[in-house]
Each structure stands twice: as structure tokens, then as C-alpha cells.
């Protein structure tokens, strides 16, 4: 999925597609490494993102990651996720909040630790870390769905996001 599309943004398109085809995995492929847009896309339901300038080998491994269910999360995205959940903490119900462990993992991620280092620090397996992250993604999607529909459907011109 490209972010810059003719009639609607890739973010909005992702959101709509995910509503209709929830099982389909969507990877954002973008020319520009704009962290904010990437976050918005992930929030809208994207399962991963790649830069167009990535080498073919990187492209392949990233796609395999997504297929394997282990969507990687960078520290920037983790920080953004924490922030976004904190902002929503007031209005969301308990089920949509991050668990203590999830937030812990996100915190460590945002501090720059890799999944492997996090697993070591928390004395859990790396698979557990990955599954926690998966939960975070799904919570983010659940969280964002209603809100984001409102946000993107409310005629906000795409140029305002760029």
C-alpha cells in the first residue's frame, strides 16, 4: 500500500480495507520515511511498513516477518504508541488499555532496546515479547478503528497530514 494515492490516502484506504477484509495483511510501502505517517498507517490497521528504497533482500525479509506474524516495531513507533495510549487513557474502556507488561515492553522499545535485549531484561522469551507486541498492535487497531474512521471520514484533506 502506498501512502500517496490519487483519491484517498493510503492510510484511509488501509482503514477501509481492514474493515472489509480484516484477515488481509497490509504492508505500507512508501517512498518517504515519515514517522508520523507510518504511525497513522499502523494505527489504521497496517501490519508493517517498508521504504521503497529498501534493497530487494530487505523487502523480502520484511514481508516474511509480517507473514510470520512478527511485525517489528521501532523505538519511535513504540514511543508514539505509548503516547497515543496515554492520551486515550481517559476515554477508553479497560479492555482497550495496555497491560502493565505491554507498556513495560513498549517503554524499553522506545528506549532503544531490541526485542532480544528486552526479552533478556524481563527474563521472558523473545516469542513472548513478539506476542505482546502483536497484542499491542491489535489493541491499537481496535482503538483506532472507531476513532480513526471518524477522523478520516470527516473530510480532512490529505494534504493536512503530509
Amino acid at each position: 500500500m502506498d501512502i500517496y494515492l490519487p483519491r484517498m490516502s493510503g492510510v484511509e484506504c488501509t482503514l477501509r480495507l481492514k474493515t472489509v477484509l480484516p484477515q488481509t495483511q497490509i504492508v505500507i510501502l512508501t517512498a518517504m520515511d515519515d514517522k508520523e505517517l507510518v504511525f497513522l498507517a499502523l494505527e489504521a490497521g497496517a501490519d508493517g511498513y517498508l521504504l521503497k528504497r529498501a534493497k530487494p533482500s530487505e523487502l523480502r525479509s520484511a514481508l516474511m516477518d509480517v507473514l510470520g506474524g512478527g511485525a517489528p516495531m521501532t523505538s519511535q513507533i513504540a514511543r508514539r504508541v505509548i503516547e497515543s495510549f496515554r492520551r486515550k487513557a481517559r476515554i477508553q474502556d479497560e479492555a482497550a488499555r495496555l497491560s502493565l507488561r505491554e507498556e513495560q515492553i513498549l517503554q524499553l522499545l522506545s528506549q532503544g532496546y531490541s526485542n532480544k535485549q528486552i526479552a533478556g531484561r524481563l527474563e521472558i522469551s523473545i516469542d513472548t515479547v513478539c506476542s505482546h507486541l502483536k497484542h499491542v498492535y491489535s489493541k491499537m487497531h481496535v482503538n483506532s478503528r472507531t476513532e480513526a474512521v471518524v477522523r478520516y471520514m470527516s473530510s480532512k484533506p490529505f494534504s493536512q497530514i503530509l
Partner: peptide, 30 residues
Amino acid sequence: LSTLDEILWAVNPKRDTFRDFVAHICGYAQ
């Protein structure tokens, strides 16, 4: 392309916040 990214980030007025600054710097650092 990566340099262009940086220029784009710098000139985009929608990215003039502390948050964007931090995200950019962290991304760059990593």
C-alpha cells in the same frame, strides 16, 4: 533518497513539533 527524506521532514510545517523532532532524531540515531 534518505537525504531527501530529511529535507522533506525539515521543510514540512506539519512536522514542527517536539514529537516529530524526537522521532526523527531517534530514527536517525538508530
